[in-house]
């Protein structure tokens, strides 16, 4: 578990970081918390020629509400997010997901931007941000673009981010009254990558029906995805156990898990259904309590 030789730079500004990425395009990787990238390097599965450590770049770890959305700096750690008062007050889904990632050491080092840019299919954030219909801010030299989370995750370790870009911010719309979210994951033991994770964000209407819903699935496809068919089945419906089961079955039909040590495909598909039901039930209860 010794990485091969690599160069290392710790720029003081974002522009300097972007210049480094541009100058060694294709062989440079951004280093944030390092909790995903460094293990891959130690196993020599990733061999970047240059690590651009953004740990000294100012202004990348703010958590604030602006223009009706929560903006989380890419370098905010899972722990900082889980403990932030804004998140605690209004974003139960984010709080639950952040507080359940890995173990305290991982939560104190790992970052939301690093996790999303790395795009491990079993990491928790991508499903959560998609369930919340969030977006990512990507910066390159002289250009900034905002990309919807849905559609951003393309494949294993592959996103819509360009090699010369840095993911700088995660944006999530502020949920209103009668909304609730939940992140439930089936893990073999605490801190494990999920066997299946389901992020649910439910918006109830005044009539008690589901006005809008977001469902994101972790670890059951090459890229975490939003379970659109399940969302369609739920929209406008009363939040009943039968409806949740129908949604769970729809989510399972969209899932494409592979067999691994977590279990065979049929087990995982069933767990998509079971965990989707549980996430929807919990999110709905929270929405109902959030009068």
């Amino acid at each position: 578990m010794i990485p091969p030789r690599f160069d290392y730079a710790r720029p003081a500004s974002l522009d300097e970081a972007l210049q480094l990425l541009a100058s060694r395009e294709g062989e440079a990787k951004v280093l944030a918390g390092g909790f995903s990238l460094l293990p891959l390097m130690k196993y020599r599965l990733a061999q970047p020629g240059l690590l651009v450590d953004i740990g000294r770049v100012a202004g990348l770890d703010a958590i604030e509400e602006v223009d009706g959305e929560l903006r989380i700096g890419a370098r905010a750690t899972h722990g900082a997010i889980a403990g932030h008062p804004l998140v605690a007050a209004r974003y139960p889904l984010i709080r639950e997901a952040a507080g359940g990632i890995g173990d305290p050491q991982i939560r104190n080092w790992g970052t939301i931007g690093g996790s999303c840019a790395h795009a491990d299919p079993a990491s928790d954030w991508p499903a959560v941000i998609q369930a919340l219909r969030g977006s990512f801010v990507c910066r390159s030299l002289g250009r900034e673009r905002v990309v919807a989370a849905r559609g951003f995750f393309l494949d294993v370790f592959t996103t819509g981010i360009e090699p010369t870009e840095v993911l700088t911010q995660v944006r999530v719309p502020r949920p209103g009254p009668r909304s609730g979210g939940a992140y439930v994951k089936l893990e073999r033991r605490t801190g494990d990558f999920a066997t299946v994770g389901v992020a649910a964000q439910v918006q109830l209407g005044a009539d008690g029906r589901i006005a809008e819903v977001g469902l994101g699935l972790t670890a059951v496809a090459d890229a975490p995805f939003a379970a659109g068919d399940a969302e369609d089945a739920l929209r406008g419906a009363l939040p009943t156990a039968e409806k949740f089961r129908e949604a769970g079955l729809a989510a399972a039909r969209q899932a494409r898990p592979t067999e691994d040590r977590h279990g065979p495909v049929d087990y995982k598909l069933t767990m998509v259904r079971v965990m989707t039901e549980r996430a929807l039930r919990l999110a709905t209860e929270r929405a109902q309590a959030n009068g």
Partner: peptide
């Protein structure tokens, strides 16, 4: 060997 790291050789934690 299918359990060659602590990601798959599952030592229980204090939580469970």
């Amino acid at each position: 060997n299918l359990n060659g790291t602590f990601m798959d050789y599952l030592l229980p934690t204090a939580v469970e």
